[in-house]
Amino acid sequence: MRREVPLVLTAIVGITMIIAHFIPPLNILKNLFEDWFFIIAAFAIYLGILNLILINGDKIYKKQKGWPFGVVVILGFLVITVIGIFFSGGKSFQDPGTPFYYIYMNLYYPLSATMFALLAFFVASASYRAFRARNVEATMLLGAAFILMLGRVPIGYWISTWLGHTLANAADWIMDFPQLAGQRAIMIGIALGVVSSALRVILGLERAYSAGE
């Protein structure tokens, strides 16, 4: 029961989704499975959030190190959730002018954008250490990144104008030919990997997801 049901369920759903691609009348079943998928995915997100609240609640209850920040996590969660569900006009909760939109624009967006902007400093310091033209491969990586970055910014445009537009053209050429070739090799490789992994999962050869307690 514990092992067999998940394997049978995966096989039935997976095979149905593949067959429905080739037999259009089966799309009714495919669409239904997709809807169920979204419902389960929503519950999976709730599971994660519930876990976050439990962990922080436990931290506060036991007065562990840094517990006041646990209070901030729970309060932040409660405020946006209550406002988003009860006081932001239902399904149009993301429309400009709603309290949810206000929180998104003045709290969520500044925090997330700054968090990712912070990475600019770490990327700069990491590249300083990692980017050394030690061999042909490293030189090609460095050269492609350098030409591309310079060819896409105003200072690169000024240099290009002085040189006769060669830098911007070089950036375009890299993107259109050698970069495209490498990208295609990666994409085809990923496709083959996904197809073989999907088959292994559907046929029950890959069971890692159904293991453990």
Partner: peptide, 15 residues
């Protein structure tokens, strides 16, 4: 901590 809490709430409301 505020970012973590607000992100969780944001995705809760969106889903």
């Amino acid at each position: 901590a505020l970012f973590v809490g607000i992100s969780a709430g944001y995705w809760f409301v969106v889903t």
